[in-house]
Computed example of a mutant assay.
Amino acid sequence: MKAWRWNGAEYEPCDSLPLTDRGFRYGMSIFESLRVNGGAPEFFDRHLSRLVQACAERDIPVEESALAAGETLLRENGTSGFARLYVTAGDGGPAVTTGQARVFIFIEPRTPPDPEDPWEIGLHDESYHPPFGGLKTANYWFNCEALARAHHRRLNETLLFNDRAELVSACMANVFLLRDDRLCTPPRSSGCRPGVIREWVIGRRKVEERRLRREDVVNADEIFLTNSWIGVMPVATVEGRPLAHRTVGPRLAGELANRRDEKL
Rank of each mutant, 00 (worst) to 15 (best):
R110G: 02
F106Q: 11
L74I: 07
V87R: 02
R75V: 08
G122I: 11
T97E: 12
R102L: 09
A83T: 06
I121P: 01
P118F: 05
E120L: 08
E71A: 12
L123P: 01
P113H: 04
D117M: 11
R110T: 14
R102S: 13
E108V: 13
T98A: 08
T111D: 13
R75W: 04
I107Y: 05
V87T: 06
P118T: 10
R110A: 11
A83H: 05
E120G: 12
I105K: 07
P94K: 07
T72P: 01
G99L: 12
E71T: 02
I121L: 10
A89P: 01
R110V: 15
G99T: 13
T97I: 06
G92A: 07
I121K: 09
S80M: 11
E108D: 13
L73D: 02
D117W: 07
L74W: 06
V87Y: 03
R84E: 10
T79A: 15
L85T: 09
G81R: 06
R84L: 03
R102W: 00
G93Q: 04
A95S: 14
I107C: 02
L74S: 08
P115C: 09
D117V: 15
Y86F: 14
P112D: 05
T88P: 00
Q100E: 13
F104A: 05
W119T: 08
W119A: 13
I121A: 07
G122N: 09
Y86D: 00
D117R: 15
A83F: 04
E71F: 04
P94N: 03
T98M: 03
E76H: 11
F104D: 03
G78H: 07
N77V: 06
G93E: 09
D117Y: 07
P109D: 15
E71H: 08
A95W: 06
G99A: 13
I105T: 03
L74G: 01
T79M: 15
G81Q: 06
T72K: 14
R102G: 00
E120R: 15
Q100D: 09
E116K: 11
D91Q: 10
W119F: 14
E108Q: 14
A89F: 04
W119Q: 11
R110C: 11
T72H: 10
R110L: 13
P112W: 13
A89H: 04
G122T: 10
T88Y: 01
A101T: 05
S80W: 08
L85R: 07
G78L: 08
G78A: 12
G78K: 03
T72D: 14
I121Y: 06
P94M: 08
G81M: 09
I121F: 04
A95E: 13
T72Y: 10
Q100V: 10
P109N: 12
R75S: 13
F106R: 10
D117Q: 15
G81E: 06
T79G: 08
T97L: 11
L123N: 02
R102A: 10
R84W: 04
E71Q: 14
P112I: 12
F106S: 11
L123C: 15
R102Y: 02
P109H: 14
T88L: 00
A83W: 04
G99M: 10
Q100T: 11
F106H: 14
F82G: 02
W119C: 11
P113Y: 05
R84C: 05
G99D: 12
I107R: 05
